[in-house]
Amino acid sequence: MKLFTFIPFLACIVACAPQDVPDASRSAQFETYPQRLFDIFETSCSGPGESFERTSGQTFECREFLPAEASAYLILNYGGNPQDLPQSVMRLTSSKNADGYRIDANVFFKVPQRTGSVVEVPLDSAELDQSISRLFQAMGGSPS
């Protein structure tokens, strides 16, 4: 899954329907469990260098290896281990609450360290936040 192509791909599902532009958010509330969202997330994470993993009961990740230049930049600037390359990660987490299900998206670069630990470098982008909000809305959620 090319991180920046996944979100627009999913948002295209309802791109032709008129809709309000939601506030930029990486969280949304769903009345029922958004199985379709997670199914599409898994399906879209199947390209070369990509891996999909359910890391816990309700946490799903799509990881992707980065181009050489981006990997080198992260290794040099964040003390990474050249033997264990950085990856981009998009994580979706679901939690049940009184109103249904809250879904949180987290996007970051995972930079393995020589000590064995990992540094997570957040990817902050207003455009990405807006795309995630549109995706959640397209899947029936209310961005919050």
Rank of each mutant, 00 (worst) to 15 (best):
F136P: 08
V14K: 01
P82I: 13
V107R: 02
M139Y: 08
R63F: 03
Q83V: 09
N97C: 07
K2Q: 07
I132D: 08
A98V: 03
Q58R: 09
G100F: 02
T5V: 12
Q35W: 08
T43M: 10
Q83S: 13
A72K: 14
D23P: 11
G80V: 13
I7A: 02
T5H: 05
D104F: 00
S125Y: 09
S25C: 13
F65T: 05
G80M: 13
S25M: 05
G100Y: 01
A138T: 09
E50S: 03
Y73A: 11
A24S: 15
L135A: 13
F60E: 02
M1H: 09
G141P: 07
M90K: 03
P112V: 01
G100Q: 03
P34N: 12
P82V: 11
R91Q: 13
L85W: 07
F136W: 10
F4M: 12
M139V: 11
M90D: 02
A17S: 12
A11L: 01
Y78K: 12
A17N: 01
L76T: 10
T115I: 00
E127G: 12
V107W: 00
R26Q: 14
K2C: 05
K96D: 00
N77E: 14
V14Q: 02
D129R: 11
A28G: 11
T5S: 09
I7Y: 02
C45H: 03
N97E: 00
T115P: 01
N106Y: 00
C12R: 01
I13H: 05
A126L: 12
D39Y: 14
C12D: 03
P34A: 11
P18N: 06
S95P: 06
S133T: 10
G116E: 04
A72C: 10
E120F: 10
P34G: 14
S95I: 03
G47F: 04
S94Y: 00
Q29Y: 12
L10F: 06
S51C: 07
T55A: 06
I103D: 05
L128C: 15
P82H: 09
E64C: 03
I103R: 03
A24I: 10
L76P: 10
P8A: 01
F9G: 08
G79N: 15
